[in-house]
Each structure stands twice: as structure tokens, then as C-alpha cells.
């Protein structure tokens, strides 16, 4: 799965988790860009991403994700 396929899949997860149907992600998107991206929603987001891609993140990996681009990078490394 390449980066654009990963992005496409994430684009189905993000709008659902944040309950924002029009939300479209970019690699530079961070938590502060999305209203309601707090600790609990973040926990839900990470769980949905893991479930959807069939992967598991390590705490260290999660704490390196500064934006969606970093997330895509780490997902790609696990597929």
C-alpha cells in the first residue's frame, strides 16, 4: 500500500472519528488544526487506525507523530 492509498483510507477514518463529514486530511495536519482532537478522541482515532490497517503502534512511535504525515510514514513502515 503506497502513501496515497494510506491517505485515502485515513480519509474515511478521520471524518467519522471527529464527526466532521467534510474533513479531508493533509500530511501537515496536526491535532491543533482540528476542533475536538483531544486526548480521548485521539485514543479513539489511534484505535480505529490500528483496526483498519491491522497494525499495532508502540508508545514510542505514537509519541513521535507530530502530524498526519508522520502517521502515514509509520503506517507505511508496518505494511
Amino acid at each position: 500500500m503506497n502513501r496515497s492509498e494510506i491517505t485515502e483510507k485515513l480519509n474515511t477514518i478521520f471524518p467519522t472519528v471527529f464527526n466532521k463529514p467534510g474533513l479531508s486530511i493533509t500530511e501537515s495536519l496536526t491535532a491543533s488544526d482540528v476542533d475536538g482532537w483531544d486526548s480521548l478522541t485521539h485514543m479513539i482515532l489511534i484505535s480505529e487506525v490500528e483496526k483498519s490497517f491491522g497494525i499495532t503502534f508502540k508508545l514510542k512511535e505514537l509519541n513521535k507523530m507530530k502530524n498526519v504525515g508522520d502517521m502515514i510514514e509509520i503506517i507505511a513502515s508496518k505494511l
Binding site: 491535532a31 483531544d38 486526548s39 478522541t41 485514543m43 489511534i46 505514537l62 507530530k66
Partner: peptide, 15 residues
């Protein structure tokens, strides 16, 4: 370190 404290908190809770 470029990551919001609420995200670090969420990561720790989830872990």
C-alpha cells in the same frame, strides 16, 4: 517537542 500535551496524555492512557 512539537506534540500537544493532550496527545501525549492520550497515547499514555491508551498504552
Amino acid at each position: 517537542d512539537g506534540i500537544a500535551s493532550s496527545i501525549l496524555k492520550g497515547n499514555l492512557l491508551r498504552h
